[in-house]
Write a protein that binds this DNA or RNA. Structure first.
Length: 436
DNA sequence: ACGCATGATTTCCG
DNA sequence: CGGAAATCATGCGT
């Protein structure tokens, strides 16, 4: 529009003589030049002013008439000129502000909580976050609280998404509407694309401030849910007998090195979860249990003596049963990472057995006499008994005494020198839990 | 109500 | 980051 030749040098009254059509018309009316023009312009302005009061059809017709009016280009130019003077002041005022920190915070949180993330992944992300908060438990979390939490979260998530979508849709609708309107109006008055853009920006800002409110309330809801969940999480439920039995069995049969590997933990968790009738039990819980057990055992070995003997006997019986059956399908978990896949066939156990032999030899040759050897031996012996190579686990009960702990001042000391025999760490994968 | 057992959390360390 | 140790908080038998 700025390219339009400046035919008008001043507004209203004077310099209109330049317009060809205008002067032509003026002479025809016969009135005073100035009067006629004024009246004409006043007429048009009046029409414009009242255009909003008319019905749609009427307005449409009027609009058309106005657009075709011979004075229209002139008026357009006047508007152009006025605009040119005001637009500069507007320009200065409109600079885009930096992205709102508050909004970013909310966005980040929603993303972290899995509310605004990808569809299904969101739930698991949130669960993972919750599990992480609970002390590093990952994997199968099918506890009642988790499912409850997830259900609530997905509810929030759903509401959030539908609302967001609604807002977005409304925003788009409104924006296109305004844009159409402005485009339409740009025929009667000068509107630059930049201005339209600016208008759209304003609209978007308005809508995003509404969105922010939505996000804020969603965040609040999540926080409330989370705190409630965390509080609930702190509640302690004792494991049932079977679960404790399984854990104790593992503990006492690996007394010399009661550090289950990740695989072993997982297996234990699975096993306990089955016997415990689905709910609870994951790696974190198993870790907790072993942590507590180790500490408390070490603190007061005497108190646990009876228990130790009992489980020793039990595992011994288990071992004989297993060996006579020729299968170790449900013996207390495999302590080695080699069998992590769960397949633990004979050839595999044969390999293990060989390595066990060599390891023992090495240890004794290297004068690594002492508890570490002892500890390895008894762990390995357990492995052997599991693999059906031996049925000698019966003699193990004596090894389950505190000797194996006390003699070397704790598991820490016992396991540390085992790294000395690390060249034989191949079979030492039995001890992968310590290296992990 | 009390005390012990025990699961969970926190803090510290290598 | 995994484990030890300390601590918290609850479950449960008395």
């Amino acid at each position: 529009m700025d390219e339009q030749p400046r035919l008008m040098h001043s507004h209203a009254g004077v310099g209109m003589a330049g317009h060809p059509g205008l002067s032509q018309h003026m002479e025809g009316t016969g009135g005073t030049e100035g009067d006629g023009r004024k009246q004409d312009i006043g007429d048009i302005l009046q029409q414009i002013m009242t255009i909003t009061d008319q019905s749609l059809d009427e307005a449409q017709a009027r609009k058309h008439a106005l657009n075709c009016h011979r004075m229209k280009p002139a008026l357009f130019n006047v508007l152009c000129e006025i605009k040119e003077k005001t637009v500069l002041s507007i320009r200065g005022a409109q600079e885009e502000e930096p992205p709102d920190a508050q909004l970013m915070r909310l966005d980040n949180m929603l993303l972290a909580e899995g509310v605004s993330g990808p569809e299904k992944g969101g739930g698991s992300a949130a669960a993972a976050a919750a599990a992480a908060a609970s002390g590093g438990g990952a994997g199968a979390d099918n506890s009642a609280e988790h499912s409850d939490y997830r259900a609530k979260l997905s509810q929030i998530r759903q509401i959030y998404h539908t609302e967001l979508e609604k807002y977005e849709q409304a925003c788009n609708e409104f924006t296109t509407h305004v844009m159409n309107l402005l485009r339409e109006q740009s025929r009667t008055r000068p509107i630059s694309p930049k201005e339209i853009e600016r208008m759209v920006g304003i609209i978007h800002r308005k809508f995003s401030s509404i969105q922010m409110q939505l996000k804020q309330s969603t965040c609040e809801a999540v926080m409330i849910l989370r705190s409630r969940f965390l509080d609930a999480r702190r509640k302690r439920r004792n494991f049932n007998k079977q679960a404790t039995e399984i854990l104790n069995e593992y503990f006492y049969s690996h007394l010399s090195n009661p550090y289950p590997s990740e695989e072993a933990k997982e297996e234990l968790a699975k096993k306990c979860s089955i016997t415990v009738s689905q709910v609870q039990m994951h790696l974190g819980i198993v870790s907790n249990w072993f942590g507590n057990k180790r500490i408390r055992y070490k603190k007061n070995i005497g108190k646990f003596q009876e228990e130790a003997n009992m489980y020793a006997a039990k595992t011994a019986v288990n071992a004989t049963n297993v060996s006579s059956h020729g299968s170790q399908a449900n013996s207390p978990s495999t302590p080695n990472s080699a069998g992590s896949a769960g397949s633990f066939n004979m050839s595999n156990s044969g390999d293990l057995f060989m390595s066990v032999q060599s390891l023992n030899g090495d240890s004794y040759q290297g004068a690594q006499v002492g508890a570490n050897v002892q500890s390895q031996v008894d762990t390995l012996r357990h492995v052997i008994s599991q693999t059906g190579g031996y049925s000698e686990g019966l003699t193990a009960s004596q090894m389950y005494s505190q000797q194996s702990i006390n003699a070397n001042g704790g598991w820490q000391d016992a396991t540390t020198p085992s790294s000395v025999t690390s060249p034989t760490e191949g079979p030492g994968s039995v001890h992968s839990d310590t290296s992990n």
